[in-house]
Amino acid sequence: MSTDLKQNSSNPGSGTTESQGTVTHEMLKQVLLTGTRPGRSGPLSASATFCWRALLKIKHVPEQMLDVTMFPIMFTLMFTFLFGGALAGSTAAYLQFLLPGILVQSIVFITVYTGFGINTDISKGIFDRIRSLPVWRPSAIVGALLADTVRYLIAASVILVLGFILGYRPEGGLAGVAFGVVLTLVFCFSVSWIWTLLGLVLRSPNSVMGVSMMILFPLTFASNIFVDPATMPPWLEAFVSVNPITLLVTSVRGAMDGALALGDVALTLAASLAFVVVFAPLTMFIYRRKH
């Protein structure tokens, strides 16, 4: 034992920026003696910890905030000024119609980063470390999704503030807007389970992005986000009317316009629930078996 101590102390730091690597038996013994296991962390606290981890990433990698700030701004400005005049006679009138829809679209698009993040984790060692801890299994994913909800909230605020500056006035008032945003967050949390599944199954972060976009583009554009489906051919109108994004947009638009349609809200929540019921267990099944 003492020889090791000598070996260590005869190894002074090389003078570089590297920290001194002297680990003595005595110190390690104290580490081991004091490593008493506290009570197990509960599902909530474990999820909160994973959520905290994801939020720290925003602090350390601020570039990723572009997705939740610049993209929503671009989308809103582009669609309002590009199509507003042609579709609704004036950009002001179109904005009144578009804003709830563009809010939904922007946030739904950001959900794909969930799968991207999980896939990135898998390619690093951290995934193994997390999976070898005695914690409630879904907490890693639930925590990440909760942190994403914070990102969605930021995107929503950006769009609402921008909309307000451009002249959007919600007739549903603050309560209507808040209800619309919360409903969107619930829906996006549920939809994210599809991407977590893809994140676990697909090989690379880029393929996750590709496949997610392939699903999202038709779903968001073939909806009532940009135009009234009444002008579409019957087959497309039929698709649009059962598209869950349409249900969500109708509900959010209703809430923000002050004409809440409870039937649509119920259907949106049912669709959200269905996503979770189908994709959460599938995700967890794969997560357990992932090698």
């Binding site: 910890t49 720290l56 690093k124 997390i130």
Partner: peptide, 18 residues
């Protein structure tokens, strides 16, 4: 987690242990 600091990583693991 490479993006997190040394202490954040250890705090995270300690929190997960309860």
């Amino acid at each position: 987690d490479e993006d997190l600091t040394g202490s954040e990583n250890l705090v995270m693991i300690a929190r997960l242990y309860g």
